[in-house]
Design a protein around this nucleic acid. Sequence first.
DNA 1: ACCAAAGTTTGATAATCATCAAACTTTATC
DNA 2: GATAAAGTTTGATGATTATCAAACTTTGGT
Lengths: 237, 237
Amino acid sequence: MNNIRDKIKEGLTDFHFNTSLSLESLPKKPKLQLEKASTKISLKKKQILFKRNDSPKGIYILLKGKIKVYQLNYDGSIQILFIYAHGEVFGYRPLLSLGKHPVSAAAIEDCELLFIPKEIFLKTLSDSVELSNQILKSVNHEFTVMVNRFTVFAQRGIKERLALSLLLLNEKFLLPNQITTEAEIKINRTDLANYAGTSLENLVRTIKQFEEKKYLRTIGKSIFIENFEALYILTGI
Amino acid sequence: MNNIRDKIKEGLTDFHFNTSLSLESLPKKPKLQLEKASTKISLKKKQILFKRNDSPKGIYILLKGKIKVYQLNYDGSIQILFIYAHGEVFGYRPLLSLGKHPVSAAAIEDCELLFIPKEIFLKTLSDSVELSNQILKSVNHEFTVMVNRFTVFAQRGIKERLALSLLLLNEKFLLPNQITTEAEIKINRTDLANYAGTSLENLVRTIKQFEEKKYLRTIGKSIFIENFEALYILTGI
DNA sequence: ACCAAAGTTTGATAATCATCAAACTTTATC
DNA sequence: GATAAAGTTTGATGATTATCAAACTTTGGT
């Protein structure tokens, strides 16, 4: 019975970063080294963590809240590229090559993070084969995700993009120990429009369409998916 | 006078892979090791090099011709993600993490390549700090490219996408020792449509528009850019 | 609890784009 | 070099989407 949901979940694997990196599974030594160096950061809603072209200072582990990663264009338009949720590790890629952040990051709700400074992370990386293997795997996975999402966004309309975005957000917004598979997708319409790559108005209308078709229901700004399969089929992936 | 062209070229850096990896600059030892293990491959136009979900067998260095890297969707539509030209090295990313190819690759014209088997490449990688640094840098750059292109494709219309695509292809199609900066962009319309992410008909019409505005001229299927600045401004990047 | 500000929804309109059909041009093959 | 096949272009039409304007709802601050 949960078979379909599992299949969908599997089909989405290469469309989001979730679980691509887990520092928990490292051997004790590197894990301790990282833990010892980590400090806690709190971010208020809307606060910016880093900006495009900043030099990366370290890596982040999101303990609580949601972070959006986006690009701000010259004309003021915003594209949200990914959204990080509880447990996700990010910010390490540009560290690997002395590069700059190609994106900006900001809190979409109050957040708590762990911060591990660049030097410690790089040191641990050069000491631990396990960590460097995990990082390579993650970096590869992230590229695959971008390629797959690119194809959808380059070719499909808003119904398809939104269906995909909602399915991905459902996974993101599941609480750590939640048993049910229906998450409360609580995100403001502007962010969701910028994530799905469309205008606010068009987004609102598409949500309404989905609601009429019983693909989802809304309570205030929260969205609950009701028909996973229909949305999944719609994505065309 | 060439100032504007240089600026445009620089602005495009984070939108294509070109020059992101150069095995030439390696120290003698790893370079020799790779060279010794390399074998030559010839591909006829339209021949497939590898397919999505294939396990990667090694890396490729394109000596002659052009390779398209694409995804084929269930509905038969195709998205070309990048096009490789003379001198470019590719296929190494999924090797780093025992992954599969997320994309397919095929020749758009007769090609000659060097092939270096997976085992030798990975051995050389673990021996050479220079190589592994280059690879990390490339992988990071490639991710940045995908992120930047994603934003353009998720947000902009076909005029913008085509302008960007043509500027990128102009760099790709420059001959190795060409002095002038205007390349002959020789590519069939279907491939170009699949690269720019639009329908064949819409592509043809947009090219015609650009031609009327003197942004470019066409001779048969070949395209020559005439107004780089106008196209660059159009991209919005 | 009130008010202002921010965020959301709806309507109307115009621009953009995909699709189908058909003509035309180039390329490949015998 | 004739002919079929493949590729390109043009036209017409409908669907999708962006944009502007205005009303409505929720939220945050006093």
